[in-house]
Design a protein around this nucleic acid. Structure first.
Length: 208
DNA sequence: GTCCCTCTGGGACTGCTTCT
DNA sequence: AGAAGCAGTCCCAGAGGGAC
């Protein structure tokens, strides 16, 4: 069977730009310039013969065609990501976690995570910050004092503590299975673990 | 002046085709 | 099978337009 497909790079540019409704933010996520994203989208529109965005002043708006197209394309990319992660042998999926310098890794009980998720290879880089995340040196980041950042999904780790540790992942990969697994693992940790960094760790031993 | 998108020209890279 | 040439693609920098 032969598939009639538009360029996948152009589809990806469309998907990200549609999520952000901004070429600039899309470019930030894809690590290219806004001009590159704009060209990809324009080329896609030309190829399809359908206008996907309405260009307003300082704002992108999805046309009806774009709105109809986006969920299908997003679902397609999600399926590809899922299929790829299922295809890889155990441990072949490498999740690179960046952690700010004052974070106590013993809070995370990483050895237990590795034991529970043998299919995910976990590598920790400390210290690491947003710079490492933007450069792609890490896949997700535990950062302090970075509540919101365009193009990235930011979630509080220690909810209600009043202290500022955040889990940050690029919007485009925030729903990847391995990142979802780690996020769920983090949420399932006991509250004392999540707060231990700021009280002083009382976990026995270092298993990280 | 600032912000965001578009356009243009050019360099770098990729992949296909042809030749040995 | 491997090397070389070439065309197409991709992306960037910089300039410009338009609205605030």
């Amino acid at each position: 069977m032969t598939y009639t497909l538009p360029p996948l790079n152009a589809l990806r540019a469309f998907e990200v730009a549609a999520r952000h409704l901004s070429f600039k933010l899309a470019a930030h996520e894809l690590h290219v310039t806004p001009a590159a994203v704009g060209q990809q989208v324009k080329a896609l529109e030309a190829r399809l013969g359908v206008q996907l965005f309405e260009r307003l002043h300082k704002q992108l708006v999805l046309t009806a065609a774009g709105q109809a197209y986006l969920p299908e394309i997003s679902e397609g990319f999600r399926r590809i990501a899922d299929a790829t992660s299922q295809l890889k042998p155990a441990g072949a999926v490498l999740l690179q976690l960046g952690v700010h310098g004052s974070f106590d890794l013993r809070r995370l009980e990483l050895a237990e995570f590795r034991g529970a998720h043998a299919d995910i290879g976990l590598r920790v880089l400390q210290p690491a910050g947003l710079h490492e995340l933007i450069e792609g040196k890490v896949d997700l980041l535990i950062a302090r004092g970075l509540g919101h950042h365009p193009g990235y999904r930011c979630e509080r780790i220690n909810e209600g503590s009043g202290l500022g540790d955040w889990l940050i992942a690029p919007e485009g990969t925030a729903d990847c299975p391995e990142i979802v697994s780690f996020r769920n693992w983090l949420r399932a940790l006991p509250a004392e673990n999540q707060l231990a960094n700021h009280r002083r760790p009382r976990l026995v031993g270092s298993r990280g």
